[in-house]
Design a protein around this nucleic acid. Sequence first.
DNA 1: GTGGTCTAGACCACC
DNA 2: GTGGTCTAGACCACA
Lengths: 138, 138, 138, 138
Amino acid sequence: MVVIMQIKINNASAWPAYQQVVDQIKRDVALGRLKKGQQLPTVRQLAGELTLNPNTIGKAYRQLEQENIIYTRAGAGAFIADIDNQLNKSVRRNLIIDQLEHAAVDAFHMQITKAELRKWFEGILGEFNFNSKEGTSR
Amino acid sequence: MVVIMQIKINNASAWPAYQQVVDQIKRDVALGRLKKGQQLPTVRQLAGELTLNPNTIGKAYRQLEQENIIYTRAGAGAFIADIDNQLNKSVRRNLIIDQLEHAAVDAFHMQITKAELRKWFEGILGEFNFNSKEGTSR
Amino acid sequence: MVVIMQIKINNASAWPAYQQVVDQIKRDVALGRLKKGQQLPTVRQLAGELTLNPNTIGKAYRQLEQENIIYTRAGAGAFIADIDNQLNKSVRRNLIIDQLEHAAVDAFHMQITKAELRKWFEGILGEFNFNSKEGTSR
Amino acid sequence: MVVIMQIKINNASAWPAYQQVVDQIKRDVALGRLKKGQQLPTVRQLAGELTLNPNTIGKAYRQLEQENIIYTRAGAGAFIADIDNQLNKSVRRNLIIDQLEHAAVDAFHMQITKAELRKWFEGILGEFNFNSKEGTSR
DNA sequence: GTGGTCTAGACCACC
DNA sequence: GTGGTCTAGACCACA
């Protein structure tokens, strides 16, 4: 009943392990691999698979809960939540724009052309089934 | 001869101070506000302006030097370097794509449409004088 | 003879399921929807309706009995009790004041005006048939 | 330079220790005892005073940061943030109303009169300097 | 069984 | 010095 996750932890990464878990679960939700109501692996189970401490997974789940990506019920498990993150929109909008600008700055310093960067960007957008007035446009 | 920097540090930001300095200098280079050969403020001078510890500025300059954004000459100061970051292109390519994807994931969770995200992205690209039209500028 | 309950369990809520059952029954008594002597559904019956574990309902009933909101008769069922919670009044007084103060603190951090908060409070009081006019009703 | 806190932890309470720390700091901010920019005690210092583990205090500080009550800077300390919690307003509005209603339900079961409950409520409001169009009205 | 809390003690990045 | 991350292992409430 529990989903099989395809999470990989890079110990050499500058990002903390719990953050990598958060990011990859958010990504899986965005890509449609995880859907509303699905149960996530238990804390202990995922900790075992990734050879991390259960506390570390617990921290990741707590952060996901706070972002309304999942909800957790002690004694029951952790589940993908319904999407309702209209909140904080103004704050997060800036975060997203910051990320895009940051990527553009780095691209400049690598002498990447706008055309190339655009191509990468469109490639990523293509992977998502956005809540799109664009419906079947791809 | 020394450039006047327009750097602002946000103490409440999640990013460490030295990282904010690095990012804003990289951004100014990318936007053309800082050009090859221009001298940066001394560590102590900039530390004074931003009311930061000189160690913090020193760390920022060291990172910029490592990324070949600036070069430092003992007894002379720090200067904007010529662009030659062809080096670890494949590594950085992935970093940029990661950033773009990360932004897209966050956008999904905010229920932002592809069209809107594309608009933001183009807006950012518009600010830069990218190599596309300046292929020979170095 | 058995009352039809209008209880809803929110799985995504931070409150445990048994607590939600307790709260809603207490609320229904306070609002006059449930009256002295009325029989509650059996544990199994309510568990079935709410798709919860009978243990969970059992725990809720046990807590309600302990608070003298209901009484249970072996072989007969659970019934709404007469009000006689004069007992640990001083203890509970503090609990209520704590709740009110907690709400006020949260309201402050949301920059809600006193007038607005007062309006909400009066709105809630209006729903109840308090003892003020029913002094002799028991 | 660091504020002296008047926090007390009740080990017998049903509330976890870290939650009690969060609540009391929020309360002190709301009551005006802690003001924008003030530095909080260090994690280790407060942990020592309350004979709790530094991790427990760290958890409390992290939660306060997420609620935008404070901001923390590794290597510098934790500070009271500027108020800007306009976000989540609709969500939190319901939380506050839930708390008020909960208190009213409990008061009913204690046979407290509306007048008495109102008196308590006004007593609490009196302690706060709300961002009030009521200015000096008290 | 589940997740949540807490402790003890380690190591790291940042200032 | 600061806070942040992580581990190991304990205990608790909930389902």
